[in-house]
Design a protein around this nucleic acid. Sequence first.
DNA 1: GGCCAGGACACCA
DNA 2: TGGTGTCATGGC
Length: 207
Amino acid sequence: MTDIRRLYQIMVAHCGEQNWPAESKPEIVLGAILVQNTSWESAQKSLDQLKEATAFDPQRILQLDDQTLQALIRPSGFYRNKSKAIRAVFEWLDDFNFDYAAIWQHFGKNLRRELLKLRGVGNETADVLLIYVFDVPAFVADNYAQKLFAHLGVSSKNYQDLARQITLPVDFTFHEAQVFHGLIDEFGKKYFRGQDTFDESFLAAFN
DNA sequence: GGCCAGGACACCA
DNA sequence: TGGTGTCATGGC
């Protein structure tokens, strides 16, 4: 039940390749924070307003005062917390002139721990940033992943618990890690949220 | 009107 | 380390 590559291949065949819907890394950083504990639709409203105000230009985002920033991201909730998170991450990235490759070179395997030090960046957001911003393979053991793997016989009680149990194949690329996470969340929305029933043929294909 | 949505954090034992 | 309350808006 730990054949992640086989699961990945079956899911791609089932749903097609999925990826993070953004055109730039600053936009991904913002999306990763704004989508915390809300729907993508709500996060998108905030992103639309941020784009209108700043064109996702990091320096323009850093220049926003708290009141303006909070007003722009209000639709996705927790706007006080999220404004602090956005500022913390962008100020940290600014220290490295938004040179993502240089940051990875600098911290290497310690990058995840550095990300976790930032205000508003927890396990899930750290892994999302690793995958989509720093091009480093990682497994996002989020809510949907926990539900999916529970159906596949791997029960877990929280993020860390599942993360401990799942290891990506050593040859898994960052792109595959991106698609894998996209697939898990698309799959989760489809089968664990709406009225759609879980596709038993999917389970049969995997077992 | 209550519940949930691609979490994180402070506080507590 | 692990459990609980809080943060806030929008859609159904």
